[in-house]
Design a protein around this nucleic acid. Structure first.
Length: 398
DNA sequence: ATGTAC
């Protein structure tokens, strides 16, 4: 980086400034800090913002926003366009039976049989673009959760969104499935980044932008499938993608698990056994790069969860229920363990840090009722794999 | 994260 007029904002070592929006009360791994430092030193990076959900990722710190003069596809990774959508349901909460709702949500399993071509065309996408996966949640940390508006902290803002305490909502976390994987796969040898104005940069950006629109449509279709299964209507409250590149302040902003704040309300996802929140973004701070935390953030990686949760039968059974009396639909045992609530940080602390940093204010807390992840039974092979990992971990501890 | 990889 040269001695431009921006030199005053650049630390002596030439790395970009890192703005941290978390306190020492948040659980931040050393590896995530190292990744932040690495990313801030990458060529062309001018600004980095880190949020309290920060945790190490495969190619960089998840829970950060990175402004650069070029596109680094690895910072976005596979799941281009991944994000959170919140929908209001016109279903009376008092009529809801959780076990029946859980049974109905099982209809989310399998393919969606609607008119994919028409919906894709409506989003200005090719009518045959990856349509076999449309309307499906996927695996990992993706979910579709039925929630109830619990505590209200800003009644006026909630009312402005035509919501009130006791209303049922749907929080959908999903992305572009293997469409995004294919787009990332086409640039795997480009870790030095792409000039956004070069043919390669433009080609990536075009395919990326399609995956972003596909992912948003996918969340919409998942919500529609869920509402149809629950036999009610739905209305969108917010859609906040957190994994993509976009133009920002004359550069390329990489959202690496950092929610976009261009709407009145932004969802902050908790774990399935913790509250989620509806946030009102505060006046913009340039250093925050128009971003917020996207969730609680992982505390433990997937692999290490095998030794931490689901060790006994009763432990595994308890993973299917929540302390709120909620239900979890996830018949893949390995997934149930990897995504155990213990794998996640406390979303209330994430909220506190965002609040004290002056980035957002809570509007309402959302209580999980039914978390839908996967309704098909895990295979014999994945059970065997689970057992092998367990034995291996036990041996490693000696 | 993923119609994974053994």
């Amino acid at each position: 980086m040269g001695t431009s007029e921006k030199a005053g904002a650049v630390p002596a070592n030439g790395a970009a400034p890192i703005q941290r929006f978390y306190s020492d009360r948040s659980w931040i791994e050393g590896a995530a800090e190292e990744q932040l430092t690495f990313v801030a030193g990458m060529a062309g990076v001018s600004s980095v913002a880190a949020f309290p959900d920060l945790h190490p990722g495969k190619y960089g710190p998840v829970g950060s926003a990175i402004l650069a003069d070029r596109i680094y596809p690895q910072l976005i990774g596979n799941d281009i366009g991944c994000g959170m959508s919140l929908y209001a349901l016109d279903l009376p909460a008092r009529k809801l039976r959780l076990d029946k709702a859980a049974a109905k949500l099982r209809q989310l399993e399998g393919v969606w049989t609607g008119n994919a071509g028409a919906r894709l065309a409506g989003e200005d996408l090719p009518t045959d673009l990856h349509n076999q996966a449309l309307g499906t949640i996927g695996g990992g940390n993706h979910f579709c959760e039925l929630q109830v508006i619990d505590e209200v902290t800003d009644g006026a803002l909630l009312e402005a969104a035509a919501l009130r305490k006791g209303d049922l909502v749907l929080l959908v976390h999903s992305g572009s499935r293997s469409l995004g994987t294919a787009v990332f796969g086409s640039v795997l040898d480009r870790f030095d980044g792409l000039d956004p104005n070069s043919p390669d940069g433009k080609a990536y950006r075009a395919a990326h932008d399609q995956a972003v629109r596909w992912a948003a449509l996918n969340r919409e279709l998942i919500a529609e499938r869920a509402a149809k299964a629950l036999r009610c209507d739905l209305r969108i409250v917010a859609d906040a993608p957190h994994n993509l590149v976009e133009d920002h302040a004359g550069g390329i902003l990489h959202r690496k698990g950092a929610a976009r704040v261009d709407q009145a309300l932004v969802p902050l996802a908790g774990s399935r056994d913790a509250l989620s929140y509806l946030l009102a973004p505060c006046r913009e701070q340039a250093e925050a790069l128009a971003s917020l935390a996207h969730g609680a953030g992982r505390k433990y990686d997937r692999r290490s969860m095998t030794g931490r949760a689901g060790g006994t039968r009763s432990d595994r059974d308890s993973l299917g229920r929540t302390s709120f009396g909620g239900l979890v639909v996830c018949e893949d045992r390995q997934l149930l363990i990897e995504e155990a609530p213990a794998a996640y940080k406390d979303p209330a602390q994430v909220l506190k840090d965002l609040q004290s940093a002056g980035l957002a204010a809570p509007v309402a807390a959302l209580k999980p009722l039914v978390t839908y992840k996967k309704a098909v039974s895990d295979t014999l092979e994945s059970a065997r794999q689970d057992k092998r990992r367990r034995l291996w971990d036990r041996r490693a501890k000696r």
